[in-house]
Design a protein around this nucleic acid. Structure first.
Lengths: 198, 198
DNA sequence: TATTGTTATACTCTATAACTATA
DNA sequence: TATAGTTATAGAGTATAACAATA
């Protein structure tokens, strides 16, 4: 029957929502004292469920938008990073994108086969390879970003413009903090050669 | 070296953030016309990255909080659902939690082994099994919910009280919409026997 | 000796298919 | 015949370990 893919869990149905409501009702119905949460707004309490649903929905939309890119979202990330930050060594790229270096090998094989990036010898270290985007890679990236932008709008469809930016802002702050606590990437050098049109 | 686990992608480092900044700078530096986004707030635009980071962080915290529950977050969900909604048939539970029925079998094996739930014969259909939580299961659930609540607070640590509830509200709305578009569960009958203290 | 990148292999988790027992 | 649940197995995706080339 094929259900959705495992996603690190905490997604799927909101058990707590209903659970908490049920227990709320039970307490009140039993004539118990008003519990901690005063109002009847227990729905907003299930962060895990909401987070999972939204994340899954976005991941799905993004995957669909990027389906023809080798490696999917990861291929996009490699492309986006190398275009934005210039040539990167394979291992650095792997670390920055939180991809195992062995996986990075396969990923780059696919991207190179599709002529989106190239592996070039690093003049400074003959062991290392520099990953550089091809012209076609840059073009494809532009298209991808357009599609991703559409996907984002789709996901946030229920919010008006003001709410949308408010949500993004709050989410961003939470993300920054989370990323600071448990950073994914260490190499945070913002050195850059700028990139042309898009 | 062991990196993080694949999570459906779109997580890890923010390639677009830097990318868009770089391209913004490039455009302006080149004396180009002011592009669509007027202000210098391109950071808030990377929904995918922020969503991924926050989701991953929460998933990690939740998994840690639930590490001693068989099946982890899924085991918790089974427990929470059966406690909140009463006995459920195995297949219904699987559908509701978006878990394959074959996976549900293993999951319940583990939960039953740990004496958190029981499989009981359904009087109405001798093929079916009703999943009911044990007393110990209910107790464990209470503890789990306490821990999850702590985990939630941790994740939202950078927001003050007002921002926090605003964020939850907006997220909830986005989630409701997403869930409506692509519903995970069909059986939305809110029938319930209430449950005792917690 | 340590590091970059590759390859081969093992492991984890999920989905498919075939089976038993009921309906 | 169709459905609830189980089992075995195949499949996708990731991580580990051993290797060649270079530092």
């Amino acid at each position: 029957m094929a259900y959705t893919t495992y996603d690190g869990d905490m997604t799927s149905t909101p058990p707590d929502v209903k659970g908490r409501i049920a227990r709320e009702v039970a307490r009140r119905g039993a004539g118990g004292v008003e519990p901690q949460v005063a109002s009847g707004a227990p729905v907003e309490s299930d962060l895990g469920w909401a987070l999972g649903v939204v994340f899954r929905r976005y991941a799905k939309a993004a995957a669909a938008a990027l389906e023809d890119v080798p490696g999917g979202p990861r291929g996009y990330q490699v492309l986006a990073t190398t275009v934005a930050e210039g040539p990167r060594r394979q291992l650095d790229l792997a670390a920055q994108l939180a991809v195992d270096r062995t996986v990075m090998t396969y990923l780059l094989d696919d991207l190179e086969k599709a002529d989106l990036v190239q592996r070039q010898a690093d003049p400074a270290d003959r062991r290392a390879r520099l990953i550089v985007p091809t012209d076609q890679g840059k073009e494809v990236l532009c298209e991808m970003e357009r599609r991703l932008s559409t996907a984002e709008d789709e996901v946030l469809g229920s919010l008006d413009q003001a709410e949308r930016s408010s949500f993004r802002l709050l989410l961003q702050r939470v993300a920054m903090k989370a990323n600071a606590i448990d950073p994914v990437h260490n190499a945070c050098d913002l050195a850059d050669d700028a990139v042309d049109d898009c």
